[in-house]
């Protein structure tokens, strides 16, 4: 667990870390352009996009609703990105997480990382996703034929996050 800290974090857009929590969709091409700007020394750019799939835990999913804790969500993503930067040689990090009602095939999350070396970019993007899934305050509620249900946390996600 993190320590009880009152350190003020920068508004979620420092020069090389950009965090957004938004209802609207994102354009991966535009995000890649932002990642490429002023990172000519970086030979690697890794992106991950998480999407709404049509099934979960044995049920067809029609759509889902993503709830978040405004303020803490952005702050938590910023801290995760800062941890990745401390650990690997990273140029820029972009994280976008969507909230509200989302449908099958919709984008949920975007993570983009640039680095001089591909290994750092792969590791950092994977660590960011593993930490995001276990620390960032977002919750999914699924709508299935049987009704709506809150998604329960996955032990496997906890195990993945602990590997770092």
């Amino acid at each position: 667990m993190k320590s009880h800290s009152f350190r003020r974090l920068p508004v979620a857009d420092t020069m090389d870390i950009k965090i957004t929590v938004q209802a609207q969709d994102f354009d991966p091409g535009a995000e890649i352009k932002w990642l490429e700007r002023d990172t000519s020394e970086d030979g690697a750019l890794v992106t991950f996009i998480g999407k709404v799939r049509d099934h979960n835990q044995g049920e067809q999913v029609a759509h889902l609703y993503l709830e978040h804790y405004a303020g803490m969500a952005e702050r938590s993503l910023q801290q995760i990105a800062e941890q990745a930067k401390q650990r690997w040689q990273i140029g820029k990090i972009r994280i976008i997480h969507r909230v509200g009602e989302l449908h099958v095939d919709d984008n949920i999350v975007f993570v983009g990382v640039t680095s001089a070396h591909r290994q750092d970019a792969f590791y950092a993007s994977q660590m960011i996703m593993d930490y995001l899934k276990t620390e960032a305050p977002f919750w999914k509620k699924e709508q299935t034929a049987a009704g709506s249900r809150w998604v329960t946390a996955n032990q496997n996600d906890q195990n993945e996050a602990q590997k770092w």
């Binding site: 667990m1 009880h4 999350v109 995001l132 899934k133 960032a136 977002f138 919750w139 329960t152 946390a153």
Partner: peptide, 28 residues
């Protein structure tokens, strides 16, 4: 969470603090 940081139960509370209770997170 206290003031938007996850904490344990023994954390002391001050006037003006923002406390949040929630289930394990399921975003991403």
């Amino acid at each position: 969470a206290v003031n938007q940081q996850m904490v344990q139960d023994n954390i002391v509370i001050k006037p003006g603090d923002e406390i949040a209770f929630f289930p394990p997170v399921t975003g991403g």
